[in-house]
């Protein structure tokens, strides 16, 4: 038998507005998940302890929480593994981050579901329905394989740095579902979806902290899906429609003209208005030698790169 102290975040709004922590000791078998522990505590020590769960098999996506600060599925995370990983005898359990707690480990998921719905997470085919089913090739389905595995547990939102700074950011899981349908050959809304996903708080607002890829318990890699949506936006003619898109476009221009980043292009191209009015900052940068070089950089064998830019076809 193993013995563990669980230090759990508590919030009981019926009793008080205060957030506090409570410790519980538990003897348990070696094969024992965080969810097993919470349910045992609920059963044997404290019936008021609240947790959201359902399948206990890493399918339903209900029980995401933080164990020692790291977002996990409670049903998938072994207590002994967490202790070993962090070198502790105590396991701290907290609700997922970036959401308001409703009670103990249960958070208000409404903003998550609103964002999920906002990406239209369903197929919208074009034209009349065919007489027989729409056949999708293995290769076409393979492209959506990762995104199709999302269980909407919101582990990717918990530590998303963009969301922490901008609560309206649509976010990783919703965009993974966005790509799941934008990239589906049966969908007829590719252009509309490209527009829907790329406004303010959209794909260009992802700061690339990579927490979503790191934390996803299902290997969805939401950041990669965001990247693919950027690619679709470029294919659908949105490369000049947003400062974020123009930022990426400036890299392509730099690549074609010199092979390296041309800062003289990047700043004014991304946001021409700001570049004109942010003169004090520009002067400061110049004073410290950070002004872009007026002579564009040019790598050797640039022709190879220019030809690649012409030849390489995108397959998203």
């Amino acid at each position: 038998m193993a013995k563990t102290t669980f230090d759990i975040f508590r919030y009981q709004p019926d009793v008080s507005d205060a957030h506090y922590r409570q410790s519980y000791d538990l003897e348990h078998e070696g094969d024992f998940t965080i969810l097993d522990a919470i349910l045992r505590l609920q059963d044997e020590q404290d019936g008021t302890l609240a947790v959201r769960y359902s399948c206990r098999s890493a399918i339903c996506g209900s029980c995401a929480c933080k164990a020692n600060g790291k977002t996990v599925l409670a049903c998938m995370s072994q207590v002994e593994d967490v202790k070993k990983e962090f070198g502790t005898e105590t396991v701290q359990v907290d609700p997922i981050g970036n959401f308001a707690p409703l009670k103990d480990l249960i958070v208000d998921m409404d903003p998550f579901w609103q964002k999920f719905k906002s990406v239209k997470p369903y197929l919208i085919p074009d034209g009349p329905a065919p007489e027989k089913e729409r056949i999708v090739s293995k290769e076409d389905m393979q492209k959506l394989f990762r995104e199709s595995a999302c269980i909407l547990c919101a582990a990717c939102y918990s530590e998303c740095n963009s969301l922490a700074a901008d609560p309206e950011f649509v976010g990783p899981a919703a965009f993974a579902w966005g790509y799941r349908f934008a990239g589906d050959v049966r969908d007829g809304q590719r252009k509309q979806r490209a527009k829907l996903y790329t406004g303010e708080h959209g794909v260009w607002d992802c700061t690339r902290c990579m927490y979503c890829n790191e934390r996803c318990p299902k290997g969805v890699n939401p950041r990669d899906a965001i990247e693919k949506l950027g690619g679709i936006a470029f294919q659908e003619g949105r490369s000049m429609k947003d400062a974020g898109a123009r930022h990426a476009k400036a890299f392509l221009i730099s690549m074609r003209t010199g092979g390296k980043l041309n800062e003289t292009v990047l700043v004014p191209f991304t946001d021409p208005v700001k570049a004109h009015f942010d003169i004090p900052f520009a002067l400061q940068m110049i004073r410290h030698g950070k002004a872009p070089s007026p002579i564009p950089h040019r790598i050797q064998k640039l022709k190879e790169v220019q030809k690649l830019m012409k030849n390489v076809k995108e397959t998203i």
């Binding site: 990247e227 950027g230 990426a248 400036a250 392509l252 995108e314």
Partner: peptide, 8 residues
């Protein structure tokens, strides 16, 4: 940025 515009 290029990955986010032209992944291939």
């Amino acid at each position: 940025d290029i990955a986010e515009a032209k992944p291939n």
